[in-house]
Write a protein that binds this DNA or RNA. Sequence first.
DNA 1: CGGCATCCGGGAAGATACTG
DNA 2: CAGTATCTTCCCGGATGCCG
Lengths: 233, 233
Amino acid sequence: MKLEKLTTEGATRSARRYDDACGAAHALDLVGERWALLVIREMMFGPRRFGELKASLTGISANVLTQKLEGLEGAGVVVRRRLPPPASVQVYDLTDWGREIRPVFGMLGMWAARSPSHDPTLPLSPISLMMSFQTMFHAERAGGLVVTVAFRFGDDRFTARVSQAHLTIERGEIADADVTISGSPPALAGHVYGGQPLGALIDAGALAVEGDLDALERFAALFSLPPKVGAAA
Amino acid sequence: MKLEKLTTEGATRSARRYDDACGAAHALDLVGERWALLVIREMMFGPRRFGELKASLTGISANVLTQKLEGLEGAGVVVRRRLPPPASVQVYDLTDWGREIRPVFGMLGMWAARSPSHDPTLPLSPISLMMSFQTMFHAERAGGLVVTVAFRFGDDRFTARVSQAHLTIERGEIADADVTISGSPPALAGHVYGGQPLGALIDAGALAVEGDLDALERFAALFSLPPKVGAAA
DNA sequence: CGGCATCCGGGAAGATACTG
DNA sequence: CAGTATCTTCCCGGATGCCG
């Protein structure tokens, strides 16, 4: 009795999308599925290989990642490219328009960091930490500070530069950094955001620093999380 | 939270959450489930009743709405209140912190409106249209314009005021509006964003205008969608 | 009517194993 | 390493019914 063909009616109702002209609703149609935004996050600093994506997204399985990349490619957010020989490997990257979603991460992160249930000690990917720096940067604290910091997280390299109260971060390492820091993203986050003394983290072997250690301290002082809800101003 | 009781199986990782310190990931844990952001959207201009929410969210079913409201209440984003007698009805509203998520809608909407697949002619809730005005407002076009516009969508009333190149929108109707417009949100969107002539919409019975029609035209000229990707500047 | 519980089908998410 | 194939789990969503 309930065997009526739903295909005829189901064709009109687009599978599982909001039929809503609201821009936010359409954004959710594009990138609202589970994992989608985090996959995008991992490409925010440039193209990445399948294995890198899978390694950075703890808990995702290969088939789900494949499926998300296909969906995002169909939405025009992601492009699949093959690097020129000899390194003719396949990589995934954001389209120009896809990369424009970046401010959403800043807003989402700033908002969620105020949640009482936010736990900054959970695992953190290198890219997440670099993006958090851009979000939690306090330009008014920079003054005339000029400093270049190099980061090494496993095989991932990033360089941050502060100049004229401006912060720029890009992938890769340059030679003339004032200080180079190696270790895990959560350990560094523990210092920058959690107030853990740098010396203790170094002694524990969680971090290693080469170069101007004082420069690193001044760099770290530029960042802080927003106050939690209900916290006194 | 209430589902954790069944995790006797090996004390596995928390049901279906990203174990990620990234702020954006935590935001998705809080409001990343299907419908959650749209439910929030409908409370952006103040408290709403269950039936209002259900009516505005075309396609949602009562049990799903209940479930989302429970989840958002547990996350501290939504509060359930009972209005004082005699109107002792139950309403849902955003917490102060929950309301702070508003900029995310602006960013998401602005980004998704540039998508080639965005269809502005789909159904639109009154609140979505009001929020889109705040997002798509071009302050530089306002000059010294001072105008107050009243909107009537069914039983929903809103008032928009432009003054000193600033736009404010709130729920409710005031007496001294320069112009009052009645009709459906998609019809008004067709004029403001779709370039459909006001006269044609009025003749077709989709919109009705009382008061200074020229003021409405000047008001509408303050808004426009961002260019689609690939479109010529 | 508003709000919530329950049952059920379908489909997405996820783990695992396997292939080029 | 980069996915694909298969199977299981469980969320989503419709329908129905209970209760204030």
